[in-house]
Nucleic acid binder design. Sequence first.
DNA 1: TCCTAATTGAAAGTTAATTTCAAATATCAT
DNA 2: ATGATATTTGAAATTAACTTTCAATTAGGA
Lengths: 145, 145
Amino acid sequence: MEETNTLMDRLYGYLHKKGLKQTKQRDLIARTFFSLNTHLKIEELLVEVQKKDPKVGYVTVYRALKLLKESGLAHQRHFGEGQSLFEPAGGGHHDHMICIKCGNITEFEDEVIERRQEEVAKKIGFKIVSHRHEIYGACPKCQEE
Amino acid sequence: MEETNTLMDRLYGYLHKKGLKQTKQRDLIARTFFSLNTHLKIEELLVEVQKKDPKVGYVTVYRALKLLKESGLAHQRHFGEGQSLFEPAGGGHHDHMICIKCGNITEFEDEVIERRQEEVAKKIGFKIVSHRHEIYGACPKCQEE
DNA sequence: TCCTAATTGAAAGTTAATTTCAAATATCAT
DNA sequence: ATGATATTTGAAATTAACTTTCAATTAGGA
Ligand SMILES: [Mn+2]
Ligand SMILES: [Mn+2]
Ligand SMILES: [Zn+2]
Ligand SMILES: [Zn+2]
């Protein structure tokens, strides 16, 4: 909650720096996004936002998320093939395990893997800019049939 | 080239088993795909196929690749966000390094990473079905500015 | 050869993302 | 506070990639 306020301040800083405007729609969308603090489709965030203000349209949420991404406050993910998901950028890098039954997403971060992929890249002289490592399967709950 | 013939035989086996037909279009598409032996967009394969037979349409290539995927002879990849790429299934599993400058794709396979991700999953009781690990950055050639 | 189910290719439809544009609004300079 | 103006909004239109439909064609067993 207070984390949300910090993030909002960072957003306001970015808006001001870019000569963009603070609006009640952006405010509501960003605040909702930060406090939900999870992986959301545009449509899903729209639903949450509209509980507070039913007048807000899809495109405005789309553009607000694009802005959050540009400002480094959100990450856009492309799991599987469907819609993309957005999540607050929060802490550092992490990768994902996605349950193909229930859609549950678990985050993970493993230093051995991170380091090892640096070595694999270095071996062929490839300079890493980013990476994604996604593990698909069944989460514990979905294995109880 | 002889590898291609082996793969064609596997395709024919699959077609027969499923009561599907052997056609000159499928033959041309699959043969072209196997001999190019690389990562291709549907449109790219279409261009190659049309050099041999300009009458073949996009949808036929699309359906042939879908069939190859179903039969296990091709993999469909979703790098970045654009069109998907298909590649002959060939040997075993591998992951990819994609150059964000020139689009070059290098394959890699690292047992340390493969084993480690099993451990990471096991730790939280997640049962892995598949995974993808993509590294984006600059290939050696593209680093010479 | 004949019959029938499978295939083809053009066109239409779908889905998610993106752009356009006129009306509304936020911010800056009086 | 008022006015000027660039930005933002939301509905509608457009795009891009894929997927389905359907009538005409073709493969392959009887
Ligand atoms: Mn995440
Ligand atoms: Mn590959
Ligand atoms: Zn699950
Ligand atoms: Zn390159």
